[in-house]
Design a protein around this nucleic acid. Structure first.
Length: 108
DNA sequence: GCCTTGACGGTAA
DNA sequence: CTTACCGCCAAGG
């Protein structure tokens, strides 16, 4: 596994409960703003461990684009709702309220 | 080794 | 405001 994947996983694991982030923000945090695709690919590559809340990672629109890649299509949405994140269909409501920026929060 | 696809994002038209 | 195209990274055919 590439170091990039490791880093992605590490960041995702640091996402607080009830918060969400985007592939692009993670990518930006890693230094590669345009490598958001690889971020998603990294999450797809991993075994979706319980330690990796990949369900908290959505696209910039707050759309749960990765729901189809979970064991159950509603797993991602259901999980987010359980954590207190309101979801309308497959879109996060008031995503700006739940958004979590590693750059802004971690501020390393 | 080359081409296509994919959990994305930003800018241009 | 909506649609289209390009850029980036990694993997599969």
């Amino acid at each position: 596994m590439s170091d990039f994947f490791i880093d992605v996983i590490e960041v995702v694991k640091l996402i607080p409960k009830g918060r969400v982030t985007t592939y692009g923000r993670i990518a930006k945090y890693l230094g590669s703003v345009k490598s958001s695709r690889s971020v998603g690919w990294a999450l797809n590559n991993i075994k979706l461990d319980d330690t990796i809340p990949a369900h908290r990672v959505v696209n910039r629109n707050g759309l749960l684009t990765g729901r189809s890649h979970f064991p159950k299509p509603d797993f991602m949405k259901n999980k987010l709702i359980t954590e207190g994140v309101l979801i309308d269909d497959n879109c996060i409501v008031n995503m700006n309220k739940y958004i979590w920026d590693p750059i802004k929060d971690l501020t390393l």
